[in-house]
Computed example of a mutant assay.
Amino acid sequence: MTTEQTITFFRRMLRIARTEIAAVSALFVVALGIMTFVEVADDMTEADGQAFDHAVLAWMQPVAGEPRGPWWLKEAAADLTSLGGISVLALFAVIAFVFLLLQRKHLSALLLVVGLAGGVALSEGLKAMFGRERPPLDFQAVDTLNASFPSGHALLSTVFYLTLGVMLTRAFPRAHLKAFVLGASLLIALLIGLTRVYLGAHWATDVFAGWCAGAAWAMALWLVAYAVGRRQAVRDKGLHDEVLPPEPVADTPPAVIGE
């Protein structure tokens, strides 16, 4: 490849990156999430990773079963952690699914269901593969069911709230509103993951791995939606999100001076 061809190639790549910045960013998150998950999964079996997990848990709970901080912080953490439970997520998913159908967002509704169902399958499959034991029972301030790695709450909350947040950004034209919605989605997933460690339900690496896997899965789904949307822009066939016409505005009589 000549110097001129190389320059032309990089110019073309730069132009594609500028026009497809969202897709490139999503692809980067997918790749980074997968690579980080693999690295964390490797570290958790080594002495350094286990020492880190025990140090974080010991700081969160100086006394086993007694999380650091006032009594109300433990209660608040228990409330927040339930937002990542499968029952709560299923309820929110049904509400969001019906809302999307009413808005004729059929593709988004399908992807939301596939995202959550796929997230459950991914979480349970990885748990069965690694079979890691949870922190000792003395540290667990909430009930737990299955294996520890990765954190199902962290993974599923990241998948659901991030996917929902990305979908909601389409309803807001201004950049700062989009940023607020995405920020709120990430904050919820972050808090849920932190409560799992705080309450002794998971090791810190479990939660970090759950965030990585959840983000990668959510962005992979977004890439599918993006690709389908681009295809629908050319061919208006198949499952897609319809654009509803704006609601008619009722005529209002002019105000009378003196009223």
Score class of each variant (00 low, 15 high):
Glu4Ala: 15
Thr8Lys: 10
Arg11Thr: 08
Arg15Met: 07
Arg18Tyr: 09
Thr19Val: 09
Ala22Pro: 04
Val24Ser: 08
Ser25Arg: 14
Ala26Cys: 15
Val29Tyr: 04
Ile34Asp: 03
Ile34Val: 14
Met35Lys: 03
Phe37Tyr: 11
Phe37Met: 07
Thr45Asp: 12
Asp48Asn: 14
Gly49Ala: 08
Ala51Gly: 09
Val56Pro: 05
Ala58Phe: 06
Met60Ile: 01
Met60Ser: 03
Pro62Ser: 14
Pro62Ile: 06
Ala64Lys: 06
Pro67Leu: 06
Pro70Asp: 06
Pro70Gly: 03
Trp71Asn: 03
Trp72Met: 01
Glu75His: 03
Ala76Phe: 02
Leu80Ile: 13
Ser82Glu: 11
Ile86Ala: 10
Leu89Cys: 00
Leu91Gln: 14
Phe97Cys: 15
Leu102Glu: 07
Leu110Gly: 10
Leu110Thr: 11
Leu111Thr: 01
Leu112Cys: 02
Leu112Lys: 02
Ala117Asp: 07
Gly118Glu: 00
Gly118Phe: 02
Val120Ala: 03
Ala121Trp: 02
Glu124Asn: 05
Gly125Tyr: 01
Leu126Met: 14
Lys127Asp: 09
Ala128Leu: 13
Met129Tyr: 15
Gly131Met: 12
Arg132Trp: 09
Arg134Asn: 12
Pro136Phe: 13
Gln140Pro: 09
Phe149Pro: 13
Ser151Thr: 12
Ala154Arg: 01
Leu156Ala: 04
Phe160Lys: 00
Leu162His: 10
Thr163Asp: 07
Met167Gln: 09
Met167Pro: 01
Ala171Ile: 01
Phe172Ile: 11
His176Tyr: 02
Leu177Lys: 13
Lys178Val: 02
Ala179Tyr: 11
Phe180Glu: 00
Leu182Phe: 15
Gly183Ile: 09
Ala189Pro: 11
Ala189Trp: 03
Leu190Gln: 10
Ile192Glu: 00
Leu194Phe: 10
Leu194Asn: 05
Thr195Ala: 15
Thr195Met: 12
Leu199Asp: 01
Gly200Ala: 03
Gly200Lys: 00
Gly200Asp: 05
His202Pro: 03
His202Tyr: 10
Ala204Asn: 07
Ala204Thr: 15
Ala204Arg: 11
Phe208His: 10
Gly214Trp: 00
Gly214Pro: 12
Ala215Arg: 11
Trp217Thr: 00
Leu223Arg: 09
Leu223Val: 01
Tyr226Cys: 00
Val228Tyr: 01
Arg231Met: 08
Arg231Cys: 10
Gln232Leu: 05
Val234Arg: 14
Val234Ile: 04
Arg235Ile: 14
Arg235His: 10
Lys237Gly: 05
Lys237Ala: 07
His240Lys: 15
Asp241Tyr: 05
Val243Ser: 00
Val243Leu: 13
Ala250His: 07
Ala250Phe: 06
Asp251Ile: 01
Pro253Ala: 08
Pro253Thr: 06
